[in-house]
Amino acid sequence: MTILDLRNRHGIITGAGQGIGRALALEFGSRGAHLLLVGRQQSTLMATARLVEAAGGTAEVLAQDLTLPGSVDRVTEAVVSWATVDLLVNNAGNVRAGRLERTSEADIRSMIDLNLVAPVLLTRALLPRLRAGADRDSIVLNISSGIALVGLPFYSVYAATKSGLARFGESLRRELTGMGVHVATVYPGATDTDMMTSQNAGADLGWDRRSLDDVITDVMAGLEAGDHEINTAPESRRGMQRLNISDPMAVDAAMTPQLADLEAAVRDHRSI
């Protein structure tokens, strides 16, 4: 039985120009959604909008850098005339891998501002609309990362932001108990998207990549089942996740022999 009805949603998807954001827009579009697609580049958003409409939905676009002052206000103003807002997908994010002391302050602030501050502020601004859902729960879907479950070397700031987003969702879920808002967090493992093109770590270093289609299938199935925590990592990574709970120092020991190879493989990983 479908617990959460995903049909005919009216909502906002951030980072909708590519990757997971675009794929989720198409899934909701195929279910009759009307979407506001938010991202930095007008051209990629328009391409997503055309795909959403071909899938059976409708879409508006808003080219917006969510780290800039006033950006959240512009998103909320874009949907002020909508009768309903019952979906928010906090997907926009960026990454810069490498040793902490070699990471610039600008890159650190960019990750914190987009990956954590922006979704918190956008969720806060839209909560009155989301709580006003008529006959079914609204959805807040936060796209975290498997790195929130196992902190990986050379991703310390990214891990901090994605862990923060996960705990934000958990706390908010409890805060909104009985208020008609379903808060869910997704933990994708390495996924074959444009965000990963500058990263060269492979399965030998624990970075088994799943196809975007497989990840999105898991996300939508989890949502339809009413799950609050949706882990799309491959089984090879889940063993490490379980070990990180029971014996985190064993994870340290397992990673130590590969540190030099991993650093070389991820040092150019950047989507900022």
Rank of each mutant, 00 (worst) to 15 (best):
D261N: 13
R238S: 09
Q18H: 14
I245E: 14
A134M: 02
T256C: 02
P119L: 04
Y155W: 09
D252N: 14
R174S: 08
D214I: 04
I143N: 02
R50C: 07
L87S: 12
L66K: 03
M196F: 00
L62I: 07
A190K: 00
R129F: 01
P248Y: 08
T84D: 13
S145W: 00
E105G: 10
L62Y: 12
D65V: 13
P234V: 12
G226K: 03
R22E: 11
A160N: 05
D5L: 06
L126G: 08
M249N: 10
T123Q: 07
R131D: 03
N91R: 07
I245A: 13
L35T: 04
N90M: 07
P248E: 13
N142Y: 01
R109N: 09
A203R: 14
H228F: 07
A134F: 11
S211N: 02
A25H: 03
H182Y: 00
I216M: 09
R136T: 09
D227A: 15
S271N: 07
V52Q: 06
P234L: 13
A106V: 09
T256E: 15
S144F: 02
R136Q: 14
A16Y: 03
I3N: 09
A33V: 12
S156V: 13
E60Y: 02
N200A: 11
M195T: 02
P153F: 11
T14I: 08
